[in-house]
Design a protein around this nucleic acid. Sequence first.
RNA 1: GCCUGGGUGGCGGAAUAGGCAGACGCAAGGGACUUAAAAUCCCUUGGACCUCAGUGUCCGUGCGGGUUCGAUUCCCGCCCCAGGCACCA
Length: 852
Amino acid sequence: MKKEYDPEEIEKKWQRRWEEEGIFRVKEIRDRPKYYLLEMFPYPSGRIHMGHVRNYSIGDVIARYKRMRGYNVLHPMGWDAFGLPAENAAIEHGVHPAKWTYENISYMRRQLKRLGFSYDWGREFSTCDPEYYKWEQLFFLEMYERGLVYRKKTKVNWCPGCNTILANEQVEGGCCWRCGSEVEIRERDSWFFRITAYAEELLEYCDRLTGWPEKVLTMQRNWIGKSYGTEISFPLDGEPYAIKVFTTRPDTIYGATFVSLAPEHPLASRLARERGVKDFIERIKRQTTSLREDIEKEGIFTGSYCLHPLTGKLLPIYVANFVLMEYGTGAVMAVPAHDQRDFEFAKKYGLPIELVIQPDERLNPRDMECAYEGEGILVNSEQFNGLPSQQAREAISSYLEERGLGRRVTTYRLRDWGISRQRYWGAPIPIIYCPNCGTVPVPKEQLPVILPLEVNVKEKGGSPLADYKGFYETECPICGKKAFRETDTMDTFVESSWYFARYACPDKKDAPFDRERLNYWLPVDQYVGGIEHAILHLLYARFFTKVLRDLGYLDIDEPFSRLLTQGMVCKETYSCPIHGYLFPEEVKDRVCPHCGREVLVGRTEKMSKSKKNVVDPERLIERYGADTIRLFCLFAAPPERDLEWSERGVEGANRFLKRLWRLFRDTLPYIKDVRPYREGSLDGDMQALRRKVHQTIKRVTIDIDERLHFNTAISALMELLNKMTELWERYKDRKDPIFYAVMREAMEALIVLLSPIVPHITEELWHNLGKAGWIIDTPWPSWDEEIAKEERIPIVIQINGRVRSRIEVLEDTPEEEIKRQALEDPRIKSLLSGRQVKRTIWVPKRLINIVV
RNA sequence: GCCUGGGUGGCGGAAUAGGCAGACGCAAGGGACUUAAAAUCCCUUGGACCUCAGUGUCCGUGCGGGUUCGAUUCCCGCCCCAGGCACCA
């Protein structure tokens, strides 16, 4: 073997051999337990970034580990290939989105291969391939048949300058990111998936996803937002209509002093008698809902009144910008005393504040500086006075129901999923509009509706599909006359909602899935991806799984049994006061390369191209090798935390591998033909080393298997290497066969335990040890609890909770004996002299606390 | 604004069920080797204090309180940072 560690040579060698032998190809093997490990597939943006390296390094450790534990592991990779950046590239650089995407894919595939991940590349696919998206179009049609797809009006961001619809991310501060024009809100027909039909099931199953982080489940539960409330009718004054409001606080009904409508509410414009009111409504309607967030609460009196359903009082009707048409009924009974938004609104427009819930401390509406939103006792509420608010909710709801003035309802915050995108680079929606027959689904046998490649993506104007006759002009499948295709494409979240299932059988030609293979592999046992997908992607994938189950394709209820959400990769930013953000490699000696000014070192933020605080993994691989990068990504932080990039840390990881290499090189001549130590008692350093080996096996196994904390697994392995190096220096010349045997056992364990993390160097060392076969096919080592056990354990002696001394005892020393020893400890004795021991607290195997 | 996380030495982090705060790594300082440098190896390293330099004292896990014999860990109230977002009545 080489004298010095040469990562490039050994990594390329083993990557080639693994590929030649196809050792990561998997087939269904009935009598072996399967394990499906999946990482979120990448968008082919151009090059792999550190977030990918981290994500896929984590996944690869688990995949390789599970394989060593005897599982038949499916570990696939592919491309989430539709999306907006391809179109932006087309506009900016004149490259066709397809060319751009496929070139990126081939570049990034090479980068991933260079990192040595254990993918079964035979299952790779891209979602922009008609062979993939045609099944998605099929699902769309089947969902349409079942009423799970429908069309309704929705708001879109319209840029008058570019004459096109903008995505939310293309709107910056209310203006178009490309031309700076002020963005308008327009209404447009869009296709929706009826995810709300699954709201209850999606919520219920949150309780069964025991392998998911609680924070993700909490976010999803809140997103679905089930709430129990009451719908109450407020009759209009002098008209035979009523405004239906939704409230979760019917107990506050006597505190309602006005009613607020969403600007989109049908009654809003009807009631608006004056021109000023109409203008206000039109102005608010033009604000996007996201823009309205930051805007001050404002509203206008419609000039009309309604009647309080219980007191008969006249209440003014307002239109308010903070009332949402999408939630509840689009109308709110305003209770300023007990709702902060209503409170602010009432203060602003001088509306009365009526206190109806009295908490323990006496509130007076005149002195209130904010609304009281908590529970309390009802006051000013006629016959309900004196009831606690919780009981009052029930009593008032029942009272309203009995009189036909209201009814109890369950609402969800979750809204249906709008999937229409006025984009070119996406899967076409398989619908035809016929002047005679109306909206006609594309017959299934005509699928796929292929996205034409021979179009020009232009900077200005709408979707190229809407300009391309060859695409949109077609025949009606019913009457055969001239008809038009839908030119919208699907949200790219649709592709990523079912890709995990397609990996089970990506070669299936005549159907989306092959039932038998699907049932063998699904569900995904462990899913790994960024925390930023905690809601949208993960909820959509769960929804799609349930839909595909109900359409008869899948036999599972949930796609991902276990979920690991990783944090982001961050780095400090560099900027020049004149030239803006700078790439780290541009900065030499902390000065700007353009003007020589000192660079400002900014906050640590998520790596992003716009801030230029990115590190190119490829450069690091060239310099240190794939194993070093993988090791660093796993060592620097536990997976769920954000990872702060540090070039120094990478060097540290590299040093560790060099130390491993050198120790192995030095010991090899002595241990090459030695059998690992297996049995018999040892003492002194030999026993200590062997104990460390078994302790390390235990720690690493638990860290990888249960805790998914690779950073602590690695630190345990570093400790083992340090111990081995130390003892090697001390004993290498003693020609002690027992020492060599213990070293051999330690070396084998170290290499095998490290192999999921740094597969190349360990494969090389493994073969140098004279082993045949792949290290990934080596069974994971087990530990012997007896060998791992410390004989003497340190016990901390505290006085009043402060550490004052330590003693060492045999593990099973009884409490009485430890107490006796503690009190006899000279230091403790002197500290206790003249003081009365009140009690002692004994924590087995840890400490004894003497309270005086 | 709302939802969800996070905050520990100069830095990344460790402490697995309330029990030794700072494992492991980085950086820094000192030393060894070398003609020299790099590489490598060894030692020191949270802060302050002390005429008992010790097995010493005190402070210290964002800030302020609380529970407890004992709190990085649990509870209450703040501040700051990050992710997500659709003002959710």
